[in-house]
């Protein structure tokens, strides 16, 4: 049963990811990407990482993708304005992308020999309680610093978005 859910989610994720790449209209790309993220969130739930699943939906689907949508609509991008590469480039891109996949898969096969049998020690690591403890005990300083990062990103975005730079 679970395996079937896994298969379904994986197929959705991969198909939508391919559609992101190949759809002509940028708006469609964004929407397919949102679907991909939902599929990945489903995987998180399967892995018992509920907190990350929720955060993933909120941050990616809720915030980041909306930002993408806004920008695309703001710039009025659509299938007509979409630039096209020549065929040779597309073939080269596909070949090298496939090459990377094959290489990575082969590399994992090599590594599998050393991987051995992996056992589950604690399947409750992804709960909010557990994650909160680790986050605020071991990673308190990075957590605080990440807020500074956000602040600087916000200021940067505002400065860049201003009409008159000089």
């Amino acid at each position: 049963m679970v395996l079937y859910i896994f298969y379904a989610l994986s197929v959705i994720a991969m198909a939508c990811a391919l559609l992101v790449v190949f759809s002509k209209n940028p708006i469609h790309s964004v929407l397919y990407l949102i679907l991909t993220f939902f599929a990945i969130a489903g995987h998180y739930v399967l892995l018992n990482a509920q907190f990350l699943a929720v955060v993933h939906i909120i941050v990616y689907a809720g915030a980041i993708m909306v930002l993408f949508l806004f920008v695309i609509m703001l710039l009025n991008l659509n299938a007509e304005t979409e630039p096209h590469k020549n065929t040779l480039t597309k073939i080269m891109a596909t070949i090298s992308g496939g090459l990377l996949m094959v290489t990575l898969a082969g590399a994992f096969r090599v590594l599998e020999k050393n991987l051995g049998q992996v056992t589950v020690q604690n399947s409750n690591v992804g709960t909010i309680e557990n994650l909160g403890k680790v986050l605020f005990n071991d990673f308190l300083l990075p957590f605080e610093i990440s807020s500074v990062l956000f602040l600087s990103a916000m200021i940067g975005a505002v400065i860049l978005g201003k009409k008159q730079l000089n």
Partner: peptide
Amino acid sequence: SAFHGDAKAQV
């Protein structure tokens, strides 16, 4: 993270 039972990866 789930397979190793270590929450640090999720952080």
